[in-house]
């Protein structure tokens, strides 16, 4: 499923009038946390991208690069410091919660910690019914108990859990099953956009594949749009149509999955792809990245990556590279992209 890429650039964000409307558009979003002694932490540092309906955008990066914060900002679980978030073309950046609430039916989230995101004192049926009780049916009426029961049955089938699970408590399930429950809850209101915040990173590898497959199946079956956050390229490769690579709060490379994973232009992306273990005997081992990820409080000047970059030039220490298009649908924030 490939959609035309009318990706906005940081400089020019206007969509041509004939282009389809992106489901989600993020324009120059910053999220800053004030620290003590006048310091601040820019968790998200000027991010722009858009996601077309039916697309799966994989958001990858090391832990602490701001991808989860960005994910929560997209759904207004955190307020952004500046910038704009457009959902279905509507600016939701500063909508009050009351106005936002009806929109929440169409944008949902699956969290990383499958246990912590389910209230341990409520039965699964009760947990899944909550969104259905809170929101009115599409025709504006309150949902009846029987329609809720009917929907719960559908949801259990959708995520391949037995109906008896509805009567049980979260602690009675395994991690994979609980993540299925979380997915069912996110899908209860038939959303268009699902932000998945590292939904499989806390699971066993064998279970990871099942859950990723479930995500992929549901995406095809229901025509969903995902922003799929992960730190594992293998997971992203399996499900994404496009990939955005984040480093220290900013997107450094954005493009089709194949392009980003096989023809990466940013040295950081290249280092990430080479860090994936190859199941080939005698596969050459590339030198991993040197050094630690710098503190997001004291970000390096110029290109954020220059402290660890194998191809660093003098200019990288002073000039901040902007995200620019190097080929159709492929954007890189690097002065000297590898072509």
């Amino acid at each position: 499923m490939r959609s035309p890429h009318s990706t906005p650039q940081a400089t020019n964000m206007r969509q041509p009038p004939h282009a389809p409307l992106p489901l989600l558009a993020v324009r120059d979003v910053y999220k800053t946390y004030a620290l003590k002694r006048g310091q601040s932490l820019k968790a998200v540092d000027g991010v722009s991208f858009s996601v077309m309906p039916g697309e799966v955008l994989g958001l990858v990066g090391e832990s602490g690069c701001g991808k989860s914060t960005l994910g929560r900002c997209l759904l207004r679980l955190h307020d952004v410091s500046s910038g704009q978030i457009l959902f279905e073309g509507q600016d939701i950046t500063h909508l009050p919660e009351r106005t936002l609430r009806p929109l929440r039916q169409r944008m949902q989230m699956v969290f990383q910690d499958s246990y912590a995101s389910l209230n341990p004192r409520r039965r699964i049926g009760d947990l899944l019914a909550e969104p259905l009780r809170v929101h009115r049916a599409p025709d504006g009426s309150r949902r009846t108990a029987s329609s809720i029961t009917h929907r719960l049955t559908e949801l259990m089938d959708l995520v391949s859990l037995p109906q008896s699970a509805l009567e049980r408590y979260p602690h009675e399930f395994s991690g994979g099953q609980r993540q299925r429950i979380n997915i069912a809850r996110a899908l209860a209101l038939a959303p268009r956009l699902v932000v998945a915040d590292e939904p499989v990173s806390a699971l066993d590898v064998s279970v990871q594949a099942q859950i990723v497959n479930l995500f992929a199946d549901l995406q095809k079956q229901l025509g969903l749009t995902y922003v799929f956050i992960a730190h594992d390229l293998a997971v992203v490769r399996q499900i994404s149509t496009r990939v955005a690579v984040m480093y220290l709060g900013a997107i450094v490379e954005l493009g089709d999955t194949d392009t980003v994973l096989h023809n990466a232009a940013h040295p950081y992306t290249i280092a990430l792809t080479r860090a994936v273990p190859q199941p080939v005997v005698g596969a050459s081992r590339h030198a991993p990245l040197r050094g630690e990820i710098p503190s997001p409080v004291h970000k390096p000047s110029g290109c954020r990556f220059h402290t660890r970059c194998p191809a660093m030039q003098p200019r990288c220490q002073s000039d901040i590279p902007l995200l620019r298009q190097i080929s159709p649908g492929h954007e890189v924030a690097c002065h000297y992209p590898v072509l």
């Binding site: 929440r104 909550e130 809170v134």
Partner: peptide
């Protein structure tokens, strides 16, 4: 957070 995300008052 999940409840807020679901739009629960």
């Amino acid at each position: 957070t999940a409840a807020r995300c679901l739009g629960v008052p």
